[in-house]
Design a binder for these strands. Structure first.
Lengths: 136, 136
DNA sequence: TAAAGTAGGTACCTAGAGGAAAGTGACTGT
DNA sequence: ACAGTCACTTTCCTCTAGGTACCTACTTTA
């Protein structure tokens, strides 16, 4: 019975890490919804890595995402100021996406995550095998 | 019509950032499923911040999460080696959770995310307002 | 006798994100 | 005349993560 949230209904398909009425002292949950929700990270990473791209290029480069969801996520990222969309009213229409300055400020975070991944993902895999062989 | 994945069905409720058949060159997606999926971040952050806690303490400190999901996420984090669970077979049973050494290696990442959040979340909020007032 | 606390387990159900596929509009090439 | 391209948009449908509710076993307290 939560009252309808007063914050931004306009954008559809917003993922929500923070559930109903949590006090959430955790300061990094808001970032998750913006940067690390489903599909946003591959999009930002691809744009940051390969630079300005058209819609279909991006679609091919990411792989597995549907056009509908890609559009949704790009709108969301544009609204959040992380991605810049440029529309050329030519005929076949052309749209190009690039990462914004604000989006580029995420680069160190991505680098840190990649580094952690390289160093510690094998340990996670080890832990899983140990856990699974210990339990039935 | 994807063939049933051969990787770990044992653990229920695994969130999946990487969809069906993506090539995913993006190197940080695996980390998202482990560390930054729903509820795992608040759990890890709370354990890292306030240290070893019992189940109900954790439940109260996080807020908004149900006992069932908290149990699921804690099992998953234990399996991944990020959290250590200690069971005391006393008569009101007692269980204590603490962050593991591997989990502590995430602390710099959390700090970096918090720092980014403090510096750039206001800009995201600005961008949203600008976008919303530009569009109808 | 009954409730409360502790750490969950289990069964059922719903909301909503995300997938598949078809439509759109304006023009170009054959 | 008709197909094709691009960047969506729309409709329909499925799947499942997560919520609600109820259960365990044991002891202490009212």
């Amino acid at each position: 019975m939560r009252t309808a949230s007063m914050t931004n209904p306009p954008m559809p398909g917003k993922p929500v890490h923070t559930a109903g009425g949590g006090v959430q002292a955790c300061p990094i949950t808001p970032v998750l919804d913006i940067v690390f929700s489903r599909w946003t990270t591959p999009i930002l990473w691809t744009l940051n890595q390969f630079g300005r791209q058209r819609f279909v290029e991006l679609h091919r480069n990411i792989g597995g995402i549907t056009a509908k969801v890609l559009t949704q996520r790009l709108r969301q990222l544009e609204r959040d100021g992380l991605v810049v969309r440029t529309y050329y009213p030519e005929v076949p229409p052309r749209v190009e996406y690039e990462i914004s300055e604000l989006g580029q400020s995420l680069a160190p975070l991505f680098a840190a995550l990649t580094e952690w991944s390289e160093g510690h993902l094998p340990l996670v895999e080890q832990a899983r095998e140990a856990f699974d062989s210990a339990q039935g």
